[in-house]
Simulated scan of single mutants.
Amino acid sequence: MEKAVGTLVNLISLISVNKAVYWVHKLFSTPRKGKLSPKHLPNFLRQAKISTFIYQDELVYTYQWNAQATEKPLILLIHGWESNSARWEEWQTYVGTAFRLVAFDAPSLGQSKGKNLSVKNYQEVIDIAIEHFQPQGIIAHSLGAFTAFQQLSAKSYPTVQKVVLLGTFDRFEHILAEYFILLGYKHRLCLAYLHYIETLLKHPLARYSSTQATQNIHIPVLCIHDRLDEKVSYQEATAFHQALQAKNNRVVSTANLGHSLQDAVVFETILTFLS
């Protein structure tokens, strides 16, 4: 299926590279799953304090637990690609009332509106969420971890004292390269799309990496990554892990927990770090 779509976009590029780039970006930034219907909202989210904020004239849904315990630290939870705030149910169950927790559905995911999710607009939404909620800690997963780390390197947030990264990658270039191979895009089209992304981000893709971001982050970081992660290569993130450790941050390698890292050992490690 992917190769067939890629072939069609390659054909479009013979007529108009700009139109082909439009479709490359649309396909790359449009989640195929992760939406939630208000009629079938999980009980975990129904029980939360639900509110919204606006991003690009669209509603972003937020969820808070233990919100009344204002004396406790507030932890912002940031989910990954094709996911939503429901992914934090096991973590919330494990920690109970130890913290105040707040999560949000990224644009086009969960209950949030919008038609796509790019790294650029995810960073912008994360910025709004941090400024609005003023959390003391952040726990982020996968793409959410990568974009949150990029945003933390680009802007200072005085309230944020610690950050936890789960199953994140190092280089955005690597993710794009895998996407190009999956769809079978022609080299000329790949180069055109890379140029488009650099224009969007306003800096070279080589700088858009977790390793580079580490240089500008001066708060304690806990990074947890499974050696057999089937979605985000542990090997690809090795340089990032080394950069973190060089600044006396902690990197925990797990085994057989997969990409989701939903496990009591992981939760206890996070709890100890945040406490």
Rank of each mutant, 00 (worst) to 15 (best):
M1P: 01
E2F: 14
E2D: 13
K3L: 13
K3T: 05
A4R: 01
V5Y: 04
V5D: 00
G6W: 02
T7F: 08
L8S: 04
L11F: 07
S13Q: 03
S13P: 00
L14D: 02
I15G: 00
I15P: 00
S16M: 03
K19W: 11
H25F: 08
T30S: 15
P31S: 09
R32A: 13
G34D: 13
H40T: 11
L41A: 01
L41Q: 02
T52G: 03
F53E: 07
I54M: 10
Y55F: 15
Q56N: 13
Q56H: 08
L59V: 00
Y61C: 08
Y63I: 02
W65R: 05
N66L: 10
A67Y: 09
A67Q: 12
T70Q: 14
T70D: 12
E71W: 05
E71S: 10
K72A: 02
L74H: 04
I78D: 04
G80S: 06
A86R: 07
E89I: 02
Q92Y: 09
Q92K: 10
Q92W: 06
Y94T: 02
V95H: 03
A98K: 14
F99Y: 15
L101A: 05
G114L: 10
L117W: 11
S118N: 14
S118M: 11
K120Y: 11
N121K: 11
E124A: 12
E124S: 09
A129G: 00
I130N: 05
E131T: 09
H132W: 04
F133C: 01
F133D: 01
F133H: 07
Q136I: 00
Q136T: 00
I139K: 04
H141A: 03
H141M: 07
A145L: 08
A148N: 06
F149I: 06
Q151P: 06
Q151M: 15
L152Y: 12
L152M: 15
S153R: 08
S153K: 09
Y157D: 09
P158F: 11
P158M: 09
V160H: 08
Q161D: 12
K162M: 11
V163G: 03
L165V: 02
L165R: 02
L165S: 02
G167V: 04
G167Q: 03
R171C: 06
H174M: 10
L176V: 01
L182I: 00
L183D: 00
G184Y: 10
Y185G: 04
Y185T: 09
K186L: 12
R188G: 00
R188H: 10
C190Q: 15
C190W: 00
A192L: 10
L194N: 11
L194D: 05
E198V: 08
K202P: 03
P204V: 12
L205N: 13
L205G: 14
A206G: 09
S209H: 02
S210A: 15
T211V: 12
T214C: 14
N216Q: 13
I219M: 07
P220Q: 09
L222C: 12
L222K: 11
C223I: 01
D226L: 13
L228D: 15
Q235E: 14
E236Q: 15
E236I: 04
F240Q: 05
L244P: 06
Q245D: 13
Q245W: 12
A246F: 12
K247T: 14
R250N: 04
L257K: 13
L261C: 01
D263Y: 01
A264M: 09
V265L: 11
V265F: 11
L271H: 12
